[in-house]
């Protein structure tokens, strides 16, 4: 697991909008004109992230465990870490820089 993901705080950028249908989420990046799709556990994780003003891995895991129970925590954490890494790499999730 990427240590920086587990310790970091993130924001959803204003240039990314999303739509949900057919069990998938569409992400539109207005800065690049690209469209991406989330499927599998992605839509649920994205929905949880959208509820948070500041996104942290543990915060999303806690919200998801509340819905799905403790038994799923390890899988949620693994899926979420992978998703967040991917989103950060594509600038669909912005790291909040620590204050100097």
């Amino acid at each position: 697991m990427d240590d920086s993901i587990s310790k970091g705080s993130y924001l959803l950028p204003e240039w990314v909008s999303s739509r949900r249908a057919e069990g998938r989420v569409l992400l539109y990046d207005a800065d690049t004109g690209e469209i991406y799709y989330l499927d599998g556990s992605g839509p649920a994780l994205w929905a949880a992230m959208r509820q948070m003003p500041v996104i942290t891995l543990e915060g999303v895991v806690a919200a998801m465990v509340e819905s799905f129970g403790d038994a799923a925590a390890a899988q949620i954490r693994s899926d979420l870490c992978e998703l967040m890494e991917d989103l950060v790499e594509r600038r669909l999730l912005l790291p909040l820089e620590p204050s100097p």
Binding site: R19, R20, A21, E22, L26, D31, T32, G33, E34, I35
Partner: peptide
């Protein structure tokens, strides 16, 4: 008749966009 959310989901990829990347 799809919901507006479904309609937007289907239509957004059909909008021609500028690929700035």
């Amino acid at each position: 008749d799809p919901t507006p959310e479904e309609a937007a989901f289907r239509l957004l990829p059909l909008v021609q966009r500028e690929r700035l990347g």
